[in-house]
């Protein structure tokens, strides 16, 4: 158990993982309450486009992923707020669109399928010290923004129109929320993987909601569930040489099932 902490790649994975767990669960609570869970899936696929571009062009895939996910999130919010489109339809369109683009870039680019696999499902071996720095700094800024505007975001989640009529800048804050979510998702493709990050955003919050508490307790519970899952998941990934995203999601799912059973006993 303790020997794994001696490897620097494991230290990196744990630090990056915990930061991502905190970010994903806090932003996830707002996203789930807005009935906007699917945005995490869509942005994850957009991040994948960034990863593909990065790999082909020889740039840091993480940076490109952040940029592409951000652009995609603004496009989603623009389409959603400016046209009378169903937001789930917008998300579905951009999800398949992103995936198509990513697959084409990957196919044209050729022989890097192995490293792509790690971006899909997460790999503890892939987190460099540079990545950790970036995740901590950029993620820290994103978290700070969420916390600064948490009371406004909470109000908007409860009732968007009443929030607007009491002077809250709903449009700007909606852009802020999707931007922060985009950044968080792009940052997490290394440890959790783009196909599985949605689970880490949504499931801890949904599990916490089962306990029917107030806002603070719910957010803290979600955060606890996410961090515990990441710690266990990374450990399992190390012990059994499994993709870390998959083991993390299994831990989160386990917590979800327990929460469900505990709170819905007859």
């Amino acid at each position: 158990m303790t020997e794994m902490l001696q490897y620097s790649f494991m230290q990196n994975a744990f630090i990056a993982g915990v930061v991502i767990a905190i970010l994903a669960s806090v932003s996830g609570t707002f996203v789930v309450l807005r009935r906007y869970s699917m945005i995490s899936e869509t942005l994850a696929h957009s991040a994948l486009v960034g990863v593909a571009v990065g790999l082909v062009a020889g740039l840091n895939p993480l940076w490109v992923a952040v940029v592409v996910a951000l652009l995609s999130s603004w496009l989603i919010e623009y389409l959603r707020s400016s046209f009378a489109l169903y937001s789930d339809a917008v998300l579905a369109i951009l999800l398949s669109g992103s995936l198509a683009v990513a697959v084409i870039i990957v196919s044209l680019g050729g022989a890097f399928n192995n490293s792509l696999f790690s971006y899909l499902f997460g790999s503890i071996l892939s987190v460099s010290s540079g990545d950790v720095m970036m995740i901590v700094v950029v993620g820290g800024v994103a978290l700070a923004l969420l916390l600064i505007f948490s009371k406004e975001l909470y109000f908007i989640a409860y009732d968007e129109e009443v929030a607007q009529t009491s002077g809250i800048k709903v449009k700007a804050l909606n852009f802020l929320l999707v931007s922060v979510v985009a950044i968080i998702i792009a940052l997490s493709v290394r440890v959790v993987g783009s196909l599985l990050i949605g689970a880490l955003m949504v499931i801890p919050s949904v599990s916490a909601l089962q306990f029917k508490k107030g806002f603070k307790s719910t957010t803290l519970l979600a955060l606890l569930f996410a961090v515990v899952s990441v710690l266990f998941g990374i450990t399992l990934s190390y012990e059994f040489s499994l993709p870390s995203g998959a083991t993390i999601v299994l831990c989160v799912l386990f917590i979800f099932i327990v929460s469900l059973v505990l709170n819905n006993k007859k």
Binding site: L33, F155, D159, V162, T165, I168, G214, F215, S217
Partner: peptide
């Protein structure tokens, strides 16, 4: 300066994580 109570304001998501205190606190947000 404006306080607004919409029609059918009581139709909230029954799973929304808010105590009555949380909701009334929202009045102070802006």
């Amino acid at each position: 300066k404006i306080g607004y109570v919409p029609q059918r304001a009581s139709h909230v998501d029954s799973n929304f994580p808010a105590t009555v205190q949380d909701i009334v606190n929202m009045g102070r947000t802006s």
